[in-house]
């Protein structure tokens, strides 16, 4: 190939620029990605490694039949997607391209245009939450109480901080710990005795107050910080809380933690080892909180949060003076 010919001829140069080698074609790139996924999958489903022989897991994964199954699966998926007519992704892609709304967006529009539907859905969801768990096994009821409901509660709070105010708080869960330890303290479960032992329901406002104080203590030095600086400081705060909780044996019970926290009780009723009463308690709290926060979102404070999220600098002179002075 003579270089000077192609240099002189713009069309030939452009053609050379446009030329893609076989391995650069999108289809082959996707095959490469799928092969890599297959290899990762092989490692994920392989044997648990051990420290006596660090190659054990790699050896068994990559010499056994697993590798061929996983890679074969990956290639099969690739082949089906590439060669078997219209695949799911193409249908979805063409819907977007044609300007048709996706199912999610259509439901959203429906909800916006028909407010009654929203209420119907909310009531249906609530009824489902109240009565469906009876049919579940004990394990799934535990999952509902321990994980689903607790995470939902945490997410409602996190949504305020990150979602509405746009403050990147990586130490949010430290307040979870502060609340838990103050609950343990005021019910007398920690090595140190509280001045008065409170009922669990009375502990909730006290724990909230403690978290409030902790929040102000953290907030005061960090008010000047923006974005990622706030992230690392809150992460540091989280680590400090974690290490203090783990190491202050005399106060927090160290890594063993506090175990003997009394059960919830009100008006002679005690939440014992049954799971469903806890579920109803949590559902009540979540519903109340959702109502409160939905109201809060559109209140003056809520709008201030949104303003801070959108532009802190612009929000400073307008929103806060109004909120503060009125």
């Amino acid at each position: 190939m003579s270089a000077d010919v192609s240099v002189k001829d713009p069309a030939a140069r452009a053609a050379r620029l446009r030329h893609v080698a076989w391995y650069q074609q999108p289809r082959m790139k996707r095959l490469g990605a799928m092969l890599a996924l297959g290899v990762v999958l092989t490692m994920m489903v392989g044997e648990q490694g051990n420290t006596r022989d660090i190659f054990y897991s790699l050896e068994t994964s990559f010499t056994g039949v697993n590798l061929w199954v996983c890679v074969g699966l990956a290639v099969a998926i690739w082949a089906v997607r590439e060669f078997a007519g219209t695949s799911v992704s193409k249908v979805a892609g063409s819907a977007v391209a044609a300007g048709r709304a996706l199912p999610v967006d259509r439901v959203r529009t429906m909800l916006r245009t028909q407010p009654k539907l929203k209420w119907v859905l909310a009531v249906a969801g609530l009824l489902l939450a109240l009565f469906a768990p009876y049919n579940l096994t004990g394990y799934w009821q535990t999952v509902l109480v321990d994980q689903v409901a607790t995470y939902a509660l945490l997410a409602i709070g996190l949504n305020v901080v990150i979602g509405w105010a746009g403050l990147l708080d990586l130490g949010f869960v430290a307040f979870f710990a502060v609340g838990a330890y103050s609950a343990a303290f005021w019910t007398g479960a920690l090595p140190v005795d509280p001045p008065v032992v409170l009922n669990n329901f009375l502990v909730i406002p006290v724990a909230v107050l403690t978290c409030l104080i902790a929040g102000v203590l953290l907030g005061a030095p960090t008010l000047r910080l923006r974005g990622d600086y706030l992230a690392i400081v809150t992460l540091g705060f989280h680590e400090i809380v974690y290490i203090v909780a783990k190491n202050a044996d005399g106060f927090t019970g160290g890594s063993a933690g506090a175990r003997q926290i009394p059960k919830f009780s009100a008006f002679g009723y005690e939440w014992s080892l049954e799971r469903m009463p806890y579920w109803y308690l949590l559902v009540t709290v979540i519903v109340v909180l959702i109502i409160v926060f939905v109201r809060l979102e559109h209140s003056r404070v809520g709008r201030a949060w949104t303003a801070i999220r959108e532009d802190e600098v612009a929000a400073a002179p307008t929103v806060w003076t109004r909120c503060g002075s009125s």
Partner: peptide
């Protein structure tokens, strides 16, 4: 998973 969970 690959190399075991104990320190080496």
């Amino acid at each position: 998973k690959l190399f075991g969970r104990d320190p080496l």
